[in-house]
Amino acid sequence: KLETFPLDVLVNTAAEDLPRGVDPSRKENHLSDEDFKAVFGMTRSAFANLPLWKQQNLKKEKGLF
């Protein structure tokens, strides 16, 4: 399991300012399950079932792209 970080560490943070080991294209993977659901309004599995373009739009909207 990946290390999780608080939302404010990941949202609207440039790649070079992210904690070590965080993939800038997969910031959402480093949210706790609770934060993930609070941000996206759905579970990880529901998010994973969305088309890629919709996932990317949601990530942009939430500052996690």
Rank of each mutant, 00 (worst) to 15 (best):
F47E: 01
G63T: 03
P51C: 01
D23V: 04
A14Q: 15
L64R: 04
D35G: 03
A15I: 12
A14W: 13
K27M: 15
K62D: 00
G41M: 12
W53V: 14
D8L: 01
K62Y: 06
K27Q: 10
R20E: 14
R26N: 15
F40T: 02
S25Y: 13
S25F: 11
R26S: 12
L31R: 01
L50Y: 04
R26L: 10
P19V: 02
A15E: 14
P6D: 15
V22T: 04
G63V: 03
K27G: 06
L7N: 05
N49C: 14
K54R: 13
K54I: 09
G63A: 05
S45C: 11
V11E: 05
Q56F: 05
N49V: 10
D17I: 04
P51K: 03
T4K: 08
R26G: 08
P19S: 03
D35W: 00
K62N: 09
A48L: 12
D8G: 07
L2W: 06
E3A: 11
L50V: 02
V11A: 12
L64V: 03
F5E: 14
R26K: 15
V11W: 03
D35L: 00
A38F: 12
F5N: 14
L18W: 05
R44T: 03
G21D: 09
L10W: 02
L10A: 08
K62W: 04
N49S: 14
E3N: 15
F40C: 00
A15Q: 07
E16F: 02
P6E: 14
G21F: 05
R26W: 09
G41Y: 00
A15C: 06
S45L: 12
R20P: 13
D33N: 05
L64Q: 04
K1R: 06
R44C: 01
F47T: 00
L10K: 13
D8A: 09
K1W: 03
S25P: 03
N12L: 03
K60T: 08
L64Y: 02
K62V: 14
S32Q: 07
E34I: 08
F40I: 05
T13E: 09
P19Y: 01
L31E: 02
L52G: 13
E61I: 08
E28K: 01
K54H: 08
F5S: 12
L2Q: 15
P6S: 15
M42C: 12
G21C: 10
G21T: 10
K54E: 14
P6M: 04
D33A: 09
E34V: 13
T43C: 10
Q56A: 12
V39C: 13
Q55G: 00
G63E: 06
E61G: 05
A48K: 10
P19T: 06
D17N: 13
K60S: 12
D17V: 07
K37R: 10
R44N: 03
G21P: 06
W53C: 11
E28N: 01
V22E: 04
K1H: 01
V39I: 09
P6W: 00
G21M: 07
S45E: 14
D23Y: 05
T43P: 09
A38T: 08
N57E: 15
K62Q: 10
R26F: 13
N29W: 07
A38C: 11
L18Q: 08
Q55L: 01
A14D: 06
A38V: 08
A48N: 14
P24T: 06
N12Q: 11
M42K: 01
L2K: 15
E61Y: 01
G41I: 01
M42T: 05
F40A: 03
K62E: 04
K60M: 08
G41E: 10
F65P: 05
T13S: 13
P51T: 02
E3I: 12
T4V: 11
S45M: 13
A15Y: 07
P51Y: 00
A15L: 09
A46I: 08
E28A: 04
A15F: 07
L58V: 07
F36T: 01
V39S: 07
N12Y: 03
L18G: 04
Q55N: 02
G63H: 07
T4Q: 07
E3V: 14
D8P: 06
L58D: 00
L2I: 15
V39F: 06
L18D: 09
N12T: 12
M42G: 00
P24D: 10
F36K: 06
P24Y: 07
V22F: 04
A48F: 11
K59N: 01
N57P: 00
L7I: 13
T4C: 02
L58T: 03
A15W: 03
L52Y: 09
S32L: 04
L7A: 07
A46D: 12
S32V: 05
L31N: 01
N12A: 10
S25D: 15
K1E: 10
V11Q: 14
N29A: 12
V11S: 06
L2H: 12
R20W: 07
S32A: 08
P51M: 03
E3T: 15
Q55T: 01
L52K: 10
W53L: 11
Q55E: 00
P6I: 00
V11R: 10
L7H: 10
P19L: 03
N57L: 13
L10P: 06
P6V: 01
F65E: 15
K27I: 15
H30S: 11
K37Y: 10
F47V: 01
T13N: 12
D17S: 10
F47Y: 07
P6K: 12
P6G: 12
N49W: 01
K54S: 09
A38N: 07
K54Y: 08
L18P: 04
E3S: 14
T13M: 11
D23L: 05
V22N: 04
N29D: 07
D35H: 05
A46K: 14
E3Q: 13
